[in-house]
Nucleic acid binder design. Structure first.
Lengths: 352, 352
DNA sequence: TTGAAAGCGCTAACAT
DNA sequence: ATGTTAGCGCTTTCAA
């Protein structure tokens, strides 16, 4: 184990100068810097992170806790985010400390990590509208960034989110413009912010459409293939007058279920039924690979990892909060799963 | 932030005594200890891990790196193990540092973590028969425990494994005893130790059975439903004389594929085809919930987490290696997916 | 049984 | 541009 002291002795310099040279401080002479860097390399010097941390008061560790209520089968999505975060944090020379809460106590891992002063900050995923973890961290004044948001209008914390209102709005508007008048929205759980926002967008698009008799139904549920299948089957089994001609889906996995239900009913996409889904590009499911290729609002989860890491680092470096609250747009990609409403002549122009 | 020094001042003791009292050293008087512990509690004292680590030279962190070549969709199994490990390590007051390698360089995260002296040891999962990570850690003389084994007969490292020879042997023997003579083994990948061992067990059971014309075929592949389906379908499409009457499967997910193939062929389990699978109880798939309930060799992955953590701690505490190389038996559980070979009279006793 | 003092390896005022 | 000094909070000889 070669230390700064050893380098300094060898070079007949003070440890302080060596430290400065190694850490890129401006006041060391070019000559000294070169010399120090060279010997450090030759001696295969590795800074002792622990000592560094003790001296600076920062641990270089970021806490990531498995979100609660993942009792039955976990969210593969979380894993996707975790690996992405790890990669980006590594570039920032930060390490990810992972904890899984024992069932029943979701904030214990936070309390623990905070108590041990083991981490400089947290990344919070899968926030709920009302989230005890966020409340705790706010209370304790620990730096953290949230992937998504909670219910508050003006969150007092850093976050990265997509514009879920627009996700709901754009998808719905597209369908309305295609002439669909009965639209069924298979949304996510009812206690998360993104579901809430998408529903708002859905309803706003419907309202904006005007007095025209467009109507929509919103369902909430745990995002899964079977949820999509079950709800879509039920909707498609309604009498013709109430049967939807289009679905909005909050995830590709739900869309897979919808697609299966449509087929089981002997219907075709997009001729009889249109589908537009949100696509966060989970690693195991490719919306483009669907048959037909899915029209989506596109915003890969892994694209959030870089920003999340960067935001947290900004936070740790004392940057201003309002630069650290970011909302990004999802991109509407029209593919083959959407078409004109069957009851409407394709050539007829729509008034938006 | 209350420190040892503050406690010592308040109590008019030396920091050393406070430290000793807090860490359960035998030489402090009962009176002092009580006093110190009480004030520590009142002041809500939290030892600074960093300082502790600097002084002791141990980081209290364990490295866990996502195993390589999980490019397309990751192994949910790994996630299961990771959460289990986190829970147990927490009890041992160790924290898990997670890293995901960037594609192409599997040992870079190890090199990095070792270089930074960020962790005291590693847990290595999904070992290959020849594994660069193991070679690296051995070379660098870093403590680590492997979940499974590599190809070496006498590994020079700590590991926790199940008796995969017996897994293959027991499953096969059960089928032979039921009168099956054509058995198809859908094994895991061919470059991992467990596949190798199970294959050995499979072949040994066949050999032990004697001159009697029992024959087996072994397939290797990435464990997935589609692999099971594809291979089983192919096997069941053989001419009757070569068609297997029983399958051995290396995972429940493969077994699901086999089951689907059997059904697609219009056959029944166990009347026409028997299935015995290894069951490591992945969170998303319950072998008991199969229809019919699966006969399995049972050894939940999560049961390995405790031992793995304990072994690593033993290693860090300098325990002897031979106490830290553990092989456990899997349990054969006979349920409804196995029955007598269709060509054999059910009442006829078999000579094992 | 307790205290004093040194040190883990590094950083950061404050001098020079 | 470089050196001196003092810590960060804790553990651990050594001495009393």
């Amino acid at each position: 184990m070669v230390t700064i002291k050893q380098i300094s002795e060898k070079l007949r310099l003070s440890p302080a100068t060596v430290s400065r040279a190694l850490n890129g401080y401006p006041e060391v002479s070019a000559k000294t810097r070169i010399l120090v860097e060279e010997t450090a390399r030759n001696l295969n010097y590795r800074p002792n992170q622990l000592a560094k941390k003790l001296a600076t008061g920062r641990s270089g560790m970021i806490g990531l806790v498995l979100p609660p209520s993942n009792d039955k089968g976990f969210d593969p999505t979380f894993f996707d985010v975790m690996t992405g975060l790890s990669r980006r944090l590594t570039e920032l020379d930060l390490d990810l400390v992972f904890h899984a809460p024992v069932f029943g106590d979701d904030i214990e891992p936070f309390r623990r990590l905070v108590g041990k002063q083991a981490v400089d900050g947290f990344i919070v995923t899968n926030p709920r509208l009302s989230d005890a973890r966020i409340d705790f961290l706010l209370e304790e004044d620990i730096p953290f960034v949230v992937h998504g948001r909670n219910a508050s209008e003006q969150p007092g914390f850093a976050y990265f989110d997509i514009d879920n209102f627009r996700v709901g709005y754009d998808a719905t508007k597209l369908l309305l413009d295609l002439g669909h008048r009965k639209i069924c929205f298979l949304n996510g759980p009812d206690d998360v912010h993104f579901s809430f926002e998408r529903k708002r967008g859905f309803e706003k698009a419907l309202a904006d459409h005007g007095s025209d008799a467009a109507s929509g139904a919103v369902r909430h549920g745990r995002m899964s293939e079977s949820y999509g299948y079950r709800e879509a089957l039920a909707a498609l089994s309604l009498p013709p007058a109430q049967r939807p001609t289009a679905f909005v889906s909050s995830s590709t996995i739900i869309a897979a279920g919808i697609l299966r239900a449509v087929r089981d009913k002997g219907l075709r996409v997009p001729d009889d039924v249109s589908i537009v889904s949100h696509d966060d590009a989970p690693p195991q499911l490719d919306a483009m690979g669907f048959d037909p290729a899915l029209t989506v609002t596109y915003s890969p989860l892994r694209d959030a990892c870089g920003p999340l890491a960067d935001i947290l680092q900004g936070l740790l470096n004392g940057e201003n909060l309002d630069k650290l609250q970011i909302t990004e747009e999802a991109e509407l990609i029209v593919r083959q799963s959407t078409g004109p409403s069957p009851s409407v002549d394709q050539s007829k122009g729509q008034t938006a």
